[in-house]
């Protein structure tokens, strides 16, 4: 059997999708998180409940007109229920019903804290982006957080330019001491590897390395000394079936998986 060809975005989406479990409730943002969630729902997790913060529960679009964001009816003209922001982010998320908050980010630090607000230049300049939206809420109130982002030294970084969303705060028990509720942790799917915060340490460690990626490449592209356990396994390659669903049904125009 030959291994199918795939892009790193496809690998990220498939790897993240496999970690979503049937019956879970997840809040998702646009882009690869949404692609991964729809893939999981189309394969091993048909009862995955996908929630958009705008007030949409279980979007199920049949036609794949690519939308521009979660306020775009292209994503939810067909779904199970509409609600409001408090309905989604208060009555479902804050109530504690969300298993996974699934996000993108501009930067992440070693404790899985996220920046989606502001990037500082070396010359003292700054650039402001989207801000939190529901990101800070999802990180604070979901049981677990998934992140998909590109693996670059300036993104996976020792010290954030701005802390928008709390992961494990300063590690160990500091998140709870600060007044936040417990988290099961942060899992990061990058184009090089999967990272996950340790249960005790709250610090990111390498969970698996993508096929063909060396530890040297990983270290070169990480902005801090990442914890590398002994015998890091290789990430499983995406199967032909998953790739076909991605390419034919979920993202036929290759907006996200290219």
């Amino acid at each position: 059997m030959t291994t199918p060809q795939y892009t790193s975005n496809e690998l990220m989406a498939v790897t993240a999708a496999k970690r979503l479990e049937n019956g879970q409730n997840i809040v998702v943002g646009l882009g690869l998180p949404q692609v991964a969630a729809l893939l999981a729902k189309s394969s091993h997790a048909p009862d995955l409940n996908i929630i958009y913060e705008v007030g949409v529960i279980n979007p199920d679009p049949l036609d794949s007109d690519p939308g521009v964001g979660i306020a775009d009816p292209r994503l939810w003209y067909r779904n199970d229920a509409f609600t409001g922001y408090i309905g989604a982010m208060g009555e479902i998320l804050q109530k504690g019903l969300v298993d996974v908050g699934f996000l993108g980010a501009l930067q992440i630090d070693r404790y899985g804290n996220l920046n989606s607000s502001l990037i500082k230049g070396k010359d003292g300049s700054a650039r402001h982006f989207t801000g939190s939206g529901g990101a800070a809420d999802m990180a604070a109130l979901s049981k677990r957080v998934f992140i998909i982002m590109k693996h670059e030294k300036r993104k996976i970084i020792e010290s954030l330019d701005y802390l928008t969303s709390v992961g494990c705060y300063k590690g160990k028990n500091t998140r709870v001491e600060k007044g936040l509720q417990k988290t099961a942790g942060v899992t990061v799917f990058t184009n090089l590897c999967v990272l996950e915060t340790g249960a005790e340490s709250g610090e990111l460690e390498v969970k698996s390395l993508h096929p063909g990626v060396t530890l040297d490449t990983l270290k070169e592209n990480t902005g801090f000394d990442i914890i590398i356990p002994k015998d890091v396994p290789a990430t499983a390659e995406p199967g032909a079936e998953d790739l076909e669903i991605l390419r034919k049904t979920i993202d036929p125009n290759k907006m996200y998986i290219k």
Partner: peptide, 10 residues
Amino acid sequence: PTKTLIGTDL
């Protein structure tokens, strides 16, 4: 009362 935003720069 809420548990969001705690610990953030916001």
